[in-house]
Simulated scan of single mutants.
Amino acid sequence: MSTRTSRDSTPGDDVLVRRIDRVLAFMSLGLLALAIVCFFSVIIGSSSGADMRSGVWPTVGLLTYFAPPVAFACLLAVLIMSFVRRARANKAR
């Protein structure tokens, strides 16, 4: 049983994690993992002599370039939204 009073609570205790925060965080993690997998597949494919100008390889190459900045933008959006939400919660006190 907790005997915590209102003065024992920290400023960010009552801030809930919303669904959009979870979605953006997991999307960021997924895009980063996908970029790493694509990077290693390009390395393995080019060393094994695959034709990088046909098939699925151009898409894999583009994912290697564009997924990390999009993942960073998603992570930045999550951070900004959580800072704004915490600031509003602290201001309401």
Rank of each mutant, 00 (worst) to 15 (best):
M1E: 08
S2P: 02
S2Q: 12
S2A: 11
S2L: 05
S2N: 12
T3S: 09
T5D: 10
T5F: 03
T5L: 10
T5K: 14
S6P: 02
S6M: 12
S6H: 13
R7K: 09
R7Y: 11
R7N: 07
D8L: 03
S9K: 15
T10C: 04
T10V: 14
P11L: 06
G12F: 08
G12M: 06
D13W: 09
D13Q: 14
D14T: 07
V15R: 03
V17F: 12
V17G: 11
R18F: 08
R18C: 03
R19E: 12
R19N: 07
R22F: 03
R22Q: 08
R22P: 00
V23Q: 08
L24C: 12
F26W: 14
M27C: 14
L29G: 14
G30Y: 03
G30S: 07
L31S: 10
A33K: 08
A33M: 13
L34R: 06
L34C: 13
L34F: 15
A35E: 06
V37L: 15
C38P: 00
F39I: 01
F40C: 09
F40L: 14
S41Q: 11
S41V: 09
S41Y: 02
I43V: 13
I43P: 01
I43K: 01
I43Y: 03
I44S: 11
I44T: 06
S46Q: 09
S46R: 09
S47R: 06
S48I: 05
G49A: 04
G49Y: 03
A50C: 01
A50E: 07
D51F: 02
M52A: 02
M52G: 00
M52Y: 00
S54K: 09
G55I: 05
V56I: 11
W57A: 02
P58N: 04
T59S: 06
V60H: 01
V60I: 15
G61N: 06
G61W: 00
L62E: 07
L62C: 01
L63F: 14
Y65K: 08
Y65L: 15
Y65T: 11
F66A: 15
A67E: 00
P68A: 05
P69R: 01
V70R: 05
A71P: 04
F72T: 15
F72C: 12
F72W: 12
A73W: 15
A73V: 15
L75C: 10
L75Y: 13
L75P: 00
L75M: 14
L76M: 08
L76K: 01
A77P: 04
V78F: 05
L79K: 02
L79A: 13
I80C: 07
S82P: 00
F83Q: 04
F83L: 13
V84Q: 02
V84L: 10
R86A: 10
A87M: 13
R88L: 13
R88Y: 10
A89C: 01
A89L: 07
N90I: 13
K91V: 08
K91T: 10
R93K: 14
